[in-house]
Design a protein around this nucleic acid. Sequence first.
DNA 1: GTGTGCATGTTGCCGGTGTCCACATCGCGT
DNA 2: ACGCGATGTGGACACCGGCAACATGCACAC
Lengths: 214, 214
Amino acid sequence: MHTTTRVVDTVNMLEGPGAARPYHHGNLRAALIATAVDQARAGGADAVVLRDAARRTGVSHNAAYRHFADRDDLLAEVSERAMAELEQRMRDRLADLPDDDRGEPASARLRAVGREYVHFALAEPGLFATAFACARPKDGAPGQGPYGVLSTMLDELVTTGVLPAERRPGADVTCWAAVHGLAVLCLQGPLRDLSEREREEQLDGLLERLSRGL
Amino acid sequence: MHTTTRVVDTVNMLEGPGAARPYHHGNLRAALIATAVDQARAGGADAVVLRDAARRTGVSHNAAYRHFADRDDLLAEVSERAMAELEQRMRDRLADLPDDDRGEPASARLRAVGREYVHFALAEPGLFATAFACARPKDGAPGQGPYGVLSTMLDELVTTGVLPAERRPGADVTCWAAVHGLAVLCLQGPLRDLSEREREEQLDGLLERLSRGL
DNA sequence: GTGTGCATGTTGCCGGTGTCCACATCGCGT
DNA sequence: ACGCGATGTGGACACCGGCAACATGCACAC
């Protein structure tokens, strides 16, 4: 899609000072999204501002409307990237786990994923909030996204025999809700002022209770 | 505070058509908050708009600045009311419980509170979101608010002997996070399109796993 | 090679909002 | 009675999202 035979490098458009970009940017859509992601990272969904994004990208306002129907459309794109980054972090965390934990209690893997979920939320509050602030319901494949990762973990628990199969349905939602709730409460809720240590303790407690109740 | 000897009724200022309100409204602060709460109820925090609130209250824009430092200040007030309404609903739900449940598993009462929490979020999404969308961290007494209700329930569980005392610390956060997370995911997350029945099932599952894991 | 069509980017404009400033009005205490 | 301070008003500015009309230049047909 969007094939082009233009000579200019359409990917690495980090313009130098005297770049004098051509009339046609060549990569505007991606560049705008990147700028908007920066905005979201810095200040959440509200900080995603069309005019400012265009300005920072070195293009006039309104240029964005050739690539996005409206602000919400751009925001949806940012939300998607944020969600993807969250998923990637969870997968990376899983991959980093020592193989020792591979065979033994798969619940350790589940805990690691949950912990990473909360850590991401606290490390990237803007992106985390934007990931879920999308007004447009973008229906993705059910096995994809952070939910997919979590779901896979739980399936693993069943095959390992740790989790009785009859208790599997609904377990994903419970796990997700608990972890998501803690993240939200720590970000904008009454747990905002917890120290890092207290937060970690609460997270540990939650994960323990969660696996106990599965 | 704000004592007044004026003759006009400062409480019930639902102006009739030919009311011709005096130059000084007499009750502006409360009236503006009420209007803002309506806005929040209808569309969440973003729908709280100073100029529109002033307009609807029948006063010029800028009048609000005599009572609120800025928009965030008004929003904080709305957030407080929303939180109070959530708390009230939880307390009402508790009071409505038949006395039969009084002595028996106090966990039933805990479940009822949790269920009401989610129900409120779904019934009043705007207020629920605004309750937590406050930028200003308003530190209330720790025993107050929805958290206080929940905390009391858990203390009850300990005195009833259902919950071992050593497991009490942190249990409040876990419960709150789980219920809050489910609410958020149903409102703006990927569980948005669940049918009422599915939602109720997931809620049941969550509450069951929660009490099992306490 | 040349010329035109269409995607892309630009300037201009409108309505709406938050916030500051100067001014108007009126209640209350001296 | 009077004047001061609290309260409300109108105007102005900057910013934003979104439309419309215009400009530019790449791509493809011939």
